[in-house]
Design a protein around this nucleic acid. Structure first.
Lengths: 185, 185
DNA sequence: TATATCGTTTAGAATGTTCTAAACGATGCG
DNA sequence: CGCATCGTTTAGAACATTCTAAACGATATA
């Protein structure tokens, strides 16, 4: 690969690194995805090691995580018994799938948490009037959280709906200069 | 505060901790926000220290970060010269503001990154035909990223639009049992 | 079967982060 | 003033993570 291309790619890799730092994401995974996305040919583990200058063990672990998330695919290359990978080019889908998966788990966990917390506060035999008042106020807070929980569930349903997905796919972007139909070669 | 309430709150605090672990968020900030949200009265630094069993320095730093993000407010309490805080109860707004702020910065940075990468690849005088072909393929990838960048900008505009915000506020939740008007005491 | 070439696993080093205790500066109050 | 009570800052300890090199196991090939 030419020096110019490597230089231009490294600019992107550097930015990816910064983004991961800021957002608390796994840098190796992000960079692995990036080079697979930018490269035209499927890449072997060794070529990724060479490209990013990291250990093979790290590549092995993180590329499989990417595969699990549907971000890269293992592809067969004739005449080689190495593993080759290529990136799923629909980045938005990759991200949305991950976000939805995380959100679904969190919402589910929050639901059972609320149940347990309700039970705990209700199983008390408050003799004191002061304490009873406190408990009522806390129950009000739990009710607010319950509403929030339902709203989160609603938002997740929205993410899963066709409406949003169609918007993200079909909607033409301002300044697209009539080349959208010619671009899908 | 009664034991029952503390127990019920701790269930929530435990879950908050797990969520932070999974999503790579700052646990102290999240727990500080949580107790301020759950408590009816504004809290002093000392009461937060006592409640979460963490150092005052940590509370000091993190509560100010929360204040900067608009998640808590400093409030005046008569007859005390301590600082008291109370939580902004519109959690969705707090989260959305933070997400939008992060997204805006990342999108802006990505834009300049693409410019630099374009410049780098274009400033080469490719004599080799092979290299020129490689460069063209790479430019195609950059074009794809440019499209993605525009789409991200479009999504951010959508987040800032009234449409989405109205949906999140007005839309009644399924199973709301006609109590929505009576609830805002 | 012996050997070479893969990908995977893992112990421990290197690195980052998060927390606390103590020092510090500021401010109110007698 | 001098003391007491705040919130803030910081050096370093405690903790968690990420990475690597090397050992390992599996598989193809001769």
């Amino acid at each position: 690969m030419s020096e110019k291309i490597i230089e231009a790619q490294d600019i992107i890799l550097g930015r990816v690194n910064q983004i991961c730092r800021k957002l608390g994401l796994n840098n190796v995974m992000a960079q692995l995805y990036t080079i697979n996305y930018l490269n035209d040919k499927p890449m072997s583990l060794d070529s990724m090691v060479e490209r990013l200058k990291i250990s093979k063990g790290s590549v092995s672990v993180n590329i499989r995580a990417l595969e699990r998330y549907g971000a890269v695919r293992k592809v067969w290359v004739k005449g080689s018994r190495k593993d080759y990978y290529e990136a799923e080019t629909d980045i938005i889908r990759v991200i949305m799938d991950r976000v939805k998966s995380l959100a679904r788990d969190r919402i589910s966990e929050a639901g059972s948490m609320l149940t347990v917390s309700y039970d705990t506060i209700n199983n008390g035999n408050q003799s004191d009037k002061e304490e009873q008042e406190e408990a009522d106020k806390f129950r009000n807070k739990l009710d607010m959280l319950k509403k929030l929980h339902q709203k989160a569930q609603y938002m997740l349903d929205l993410l899963n709906s066709d409406i949003l997905n169609n918007m993200l796919n079909i909607k033409n972007i301002k300044g697209d200069e009539k080349e959208s139909s010619a671009a899908n070669a």
